[in-house]
C-alpha cells in the first residue's frame, strides 16, 4: 500500500504519469498550460546567425533551446542582397492568441529574419502528449490573422508535426474548433466512468490480498516452493 501511494505521488508530478515501453517526450513547455499539463516551465526562444558564402546563405537550422520548434533553411534560402549574414529569431508569443474557429495545441511562435525568405523551409513543431493531435500548422503575418492552413507532412517522430513554409511569421499547430467539440465532450463524459472503474478495480486489489493473507504461512522452505506444492 505504501508503495502504491509513493507511486501515485511520484507519477502525479509528471504529466500524464507513468510511461514505459516507448520513449515519452520531454514535457511540453507551454506559454499557457492547459489544466492537465501538470508542472510547467516557460518555453525557450531561439536565435540563428546564417553566414553568407559566395553570395548565398548557408544551409542551417534554427531551433528553440528546448527543441520545441525547428526550422531548416536550404542553401540560398534568403535574398541576401547587401547582407553579410542573416539573423533568424524564434520567439514564443505571449499572450496566447485565441483566433475564432481555431484551437491551437502548441505555443504560437514568431519567426523573423532580417532578410526575405525566397525558398521553402522545413518547419517542425513538437506538441504535448496531453493534448489532442494537431491536424495542421497555421501561419499568419499578424496575430490578428488571417491564419493560413499549411498541410502537414507525414509524421516522422512521435509528438511532432511538420510542414513547409515559404514565408516567416507567426506559427502554431492546431485544428479547427469544430473538429474537437465531439471528441472533447465525449472525453468529459467518459472520464468520470473511467475514474469510477479504476476506483472499483483498486478496491478489488484487496481481494487477492485478503485471500492470500488468510492462508497460514507454512513453516520452512521458500515461499516459491509452497506455490509449487499448491499446484
Amino acid at each position: 500500500m505504501l508503495a502504491a501511494i509513493a507511486y501515485i505521488i511520484a507519477a502525479w508530478s509528471v504529466a500524464p504519469g507513468f510511461y514505459d515501453g516507448f520513449s515519452p517526450p520531454q514535457p511540453y513547455n507551454f506559454v499557457c498550460p492547459p489544466p492537465q499539463a501538470g508542472a510547467n516551465s516557460q518555453p525557450s526562444s531561439g536565435h540563428l546567425n546564417i553566414k553568407i558564402i559566395n553570395g548565398s546563405s548557408d544551409p542551417n537550422s534554427g531551433f528553440t533551446d528546448d527543441g520545441q520548434l525547428v526550422i531548416g533553411f536550404l542553401p540560398g534560402a534568403f535574398d541576401v542582397t547587401g547582407k553579410s549574414s542573416v539573423n533568424v529569431t524564434i520567439t514564443p508569443v505571449t499572450p496566447c492568441p485565441n483566433p475564432n474557429g481555431l484551437r491551437f495545441v502548441t505555443n504560437t511562435y514568431l519567426i523573423t529574419a532580417d532578410a526575405p525568405l525566397v525558398k521553402k523551409s522545413n518547419l517542425v513543431m513538437r506538441y504535448s502528449n496531453v493534448s489532442q493531435d494537431p491536424s495542421y500548422i497555421y501561419r499568419a503575418k499578424s496575430l490578428d490573422g488571417p491564419w493560413t492552413r499549411l498541410d502537414v507532412q507525414q509524421q516522422a517522430q512521435l509528438w511532432t508535426t511538420s510542414t513547409q513554409t515559404d514565408q516567416l511569421g507567426y506559427f502554431a499547430a492546431g485544428f479547427p474548433s469544430s473538429a474537437i467539440s465531439t471528441a472533447s465532450s465525449s472525453n468529459q463524459e467518459i472520464l468520470p466512468i473511467i475514474i469510477a472503474v479504476l476506483i472499483v478495480a483498486v478496491l478489488l486489489a484487496g481481494i487477492p490480498l485478503a485471500v492470500l493473507r488468510r492462508r497460514p504461512a507454512r513453516a520452512g522452505g521458500r515461499r516459491d516452493a509452497e506455490e509449487d506444492e499448491d499446484e
Binding site: 502525479w12 504519469g17 486489489a205 481481494i207 487477492p208 506455490e227
Partner: peptide, 29 residues
C-alpha cells in the same frame, strides 16, 4: 506458476488501475 491464476489476473488489473490512476485523474484529452 499457474495456481490462483484468476486472482493473479484480477490483481494485475487492479495493479494497472493504480499505475493509470494519476493519468486518468488528470487527463481530459
Amino acid at each position: 506458476g499457474t495456481s490462483r491464476l484468476g486472482l493473479r489476473l484480477v490483481g494485475g488489473i487492479a495493479l494497472a488501475a493504480v499505475l493509470l490512476l494519476p493519468a486518468a485523474a488528470r487527463v481530459s484529452a
